[in-house]
Design a protein around this nucleic acid. Structure first.
Lengths: 288, 288
DNA sequence: GTCAATATGAAATATTAATTCCAATCTGTA
DNA sequence: TACAGATTGGAATTAATATTTCATATTGAC
């Protein structure tokens, strides 16, 4: 019908930035209450995204009907469609890193030069760090630190892609004078090495899909000896999770088929240093 | 009524992480359709935040009533209160990257326990990535890639703190089917290993202050054989710089006496993958 | 100051969405 | 195989929310 068509003739802002620009442009020609809700909308976009017409109107100090008139003045056919724009904004913000990564991937694939590859890895690392920073469970972290701090020897277990992390942990533990054993015998003596572990020791096991069979097997075996295990892995379905006293799920972004390990590294370093701190504290208490 | 009180007694997850943990914990004891919506919720948290019960149920392939039962099983009194948790998550996420980084750093500095240690390492890694992203010399990068791409064997040389980077490079080169040799003989045969290198090979040497003497010594020795060297190090005064055809200066931020290695890792991965790309291209040209 | 046009408030209504209910189906057990 | 209990689907009901309407107030031009 023609009436419906009429509203479509106007340029209805489809994204937040356009909407924002439109509001700012018309700001001075808007009636008082409409201007009031307009200002509120730009100041509290999240409230518009999630609130109800009634709750938003109340917060802004106007009537719900005013809110709808505001939406209509901008060319929307009601509050609901105006709200969509505010919701879309949140969704996009949220996925901006993923999109950036996707863009870089595309650029690298179509031959955007080496710089694109480099940027891609930096972006993957940043994304992973952001994710882990949001998702780390503090209680688990404390638990893991406590468990590792009281271990006589910390065994470190990892293969393939995770091996660099293990070697870094071993290096850092060594610098902190914490007895540790990196399980990586070239002579094939891993089983024997693991055999020495007792329940007074502890294990850090690291493995990501596709899980290196050797890591799984060794973790199982050492778990059966009653040695407590801290696992760093990539999903709750990981075979490591079932053996572990505490486990961390780390989601690393990938680029060009290679996953970042920055988040895992950051977690590993934090664990190591926190264990060192805790030991120092404990040592001081014993002496003092 | 007592029924209402009963639901409040249970620990209702108030934040997304707790909710997530609760779901994962009960995952196996949930009925089929409930488990289905549970998996959907964790995979598509944004949809839960924005959708209606009907739309979400349809996307997940269940009935709206199932969605409500799911919420109730978790202790919420309905879908609406479950949804609040998902919305809150989006609001929190929303704060900008820089703001969060600044917050992390502040918190880490004022020493707020274990979480602060973790935040400190994340902040250090993020800072380092930002720095390298700004300072990387593209021409040097291209040069290094060209040099490495035409090598018969790539020797990788690093000790101590840099060793994890070397082992990761070796792993990645291996996956890309690029012949390489990680110089790390436990049997003390490094000198012999290096002896095989010719000017048709190439070296990636990584070392940061305080430079591991072995790395320096081996790099000198291999340079004298006329093998071209790409170095990753931390300043122009680095002893590695003088031997290298191309060298990168990487400034890593530190926390608690431990430097990040995220930037070095990102550079290493980018170099590796770029070399792989270049070889693929060259291969195609030769065949086509 | 009066009038018309515009804007606003508040309640009524229409719409949409969440929740409940009950019959049907599945699952495990005797 | 029969049964009880749990689970599920789908319609009916209830609650909530957006929108419309209309009376009232405000504004600006003459």
């Amino acid at each position: 019908m023609a009436v419906g068509g009429a509203t479509m003739d106007e340029r209805v802002p489809r994204d937040f930035e356009t909407l924002r620009a439109t509001i700012l442009e018309r700001r001075h020609s808007l009636p008082k209450r409409i201007a009031q809700i307009a200002a509120y909308a730009l100041d509290n976009p999240d409230d518009i995204a999630f609130g109800t017409a009634a709750s938003i109107a109340a917060s802004a100090g106007v009537q719900p009907s005013t809110l709808i008139r505001f939406a209509q003045q901008l060319g929307f056919d009601g509050f609901t469609s105006l709200q969509q724009v505010f919701r879309e904004r949140l969704r996009e913000r949220n996925s901006s890193y993923d999109e950036r990564l996707a863009a870089l991937r595309a650029k690298a694939e179509e031959g955007g030069g080496h710089r694109a590859i480099f940027d891609g890895f930096v972006a993957a690392a940043s994304t992973s760090l952001g994710d882990i920073s949001r998702s780390l469970n503090e209680a688990h972290f404390d638990e893991a630190v406590a468990l590792l701090a009281k271990a006589e020897t910390i065994y470190v277990l990892a293969r393939r892609r995770s091996y660099p992390v293990a070697s870094y942990i071993a290096y850092a533990l060594g610098k902190l004078k914490i007895r540790n054993q990196l399980v990586e015998s070239a002579a094939g003596l891993n089983a024997e090495m693991i055999g020495f572990a007792t329940p007074r020791d502890a294990v850090i096991a690291i493995s990501f899909s596709p899980y290196a069979p050797a890591t799984i097997e060794e973790t199982r075996s050492i778990a059966e000896q009653g040695v407590p295990i801290v696992a760093i892995t990539d999903s709750s379905f990981s075979p490591l999770a079932q053996f572990a006293e505490v486990w961390f799920e780390v989601a690393e972004a990938d680029f060009g088929g290679f996953r970042s390990i920055s988040a895992t590294m950051a977690l590993a370093m934090a664990l190591t240093v926190a264990v060192g701190e805790k030991r120092r504290e404990a040592g001081r208490r014993r002496k003092g």
